[in-house]
Simulated assay, not measured.
Amino acid sequence: METKEYNLAISNHDFKVKGYWLDQVEDFGQTVDYPIVIICPGGGFTFHSQREEEPIALRFNSFGMHVVVLEYKLIDDTPVFPTALQEMAKTIDWINQQPASRHIDKKRIILAGFSAGGQIVSAYNGIGTDPKLRKKYQIDQYSGDFAATILGYPVVDMTVKGSFPADDKIRQQISTDETFWQTQNYLNGNSKPSFVWQTRTDELVNISNSLMYVGKMNQLNLPVEYHLFGSGIHGLALGTYVTKKPGKDKYLNARAAGWIDLAMSWLEMMKLLG
Rank of each mutant, 00 (worst) to 15 (best):
W181V: 01
T3C: 08
P55F: 11
H234C: 06
E203V: 02
Y34M: 01
G113P: 01
R200A: 15
S210V: 11
S208L: 13
L238W: 06
L151M: 11
M88Y: 00
Q184G: 05
S115T: 02
M65D: 01
N125S: 10
K192F: 07
Y153R: 01
K16G: 00
A166T: 10
E5G: 06
G19H: 11
K16N: 12
K192H: 07
V67R: 04
I120S: 00
V80Q: 02
L74V: 03
G247K: 06
L58A: 06
L187S: 07
C40P: 00
Q24T: 02
T78D: 14
V196Q: 05
F195T: 04
T31Q: 14
A166H: 04
G43K: 09
P193H: 01
F60H: 13
Q141N: 09
L211Q: 14
N7I: 11
F60M: 12
H234Q: 09
K16P: 00
Q97E: 15
D33K: 14
W197P: 06
T201R: 08
L211G: 04
N188E: 07
V160G: 02
T149R: 03
Y142Q: 02
G274E: 14
E53D: 10
G117Q: 10
F47I: 13
F15T: 08
K192A: 03
L70Y: 04
Q184N: 14
Y6R: 09
Y124D: 02
S49L: 12
D177K: 05
L111H: 02
I36T: 10
T179Q: 11
I109A: 07
K106G: 04
E225Y: 10
S191Q: 07
L70T: 02
T31V: 14
L236A: 08
D14I: 03
R59N: 10
N188I: 05
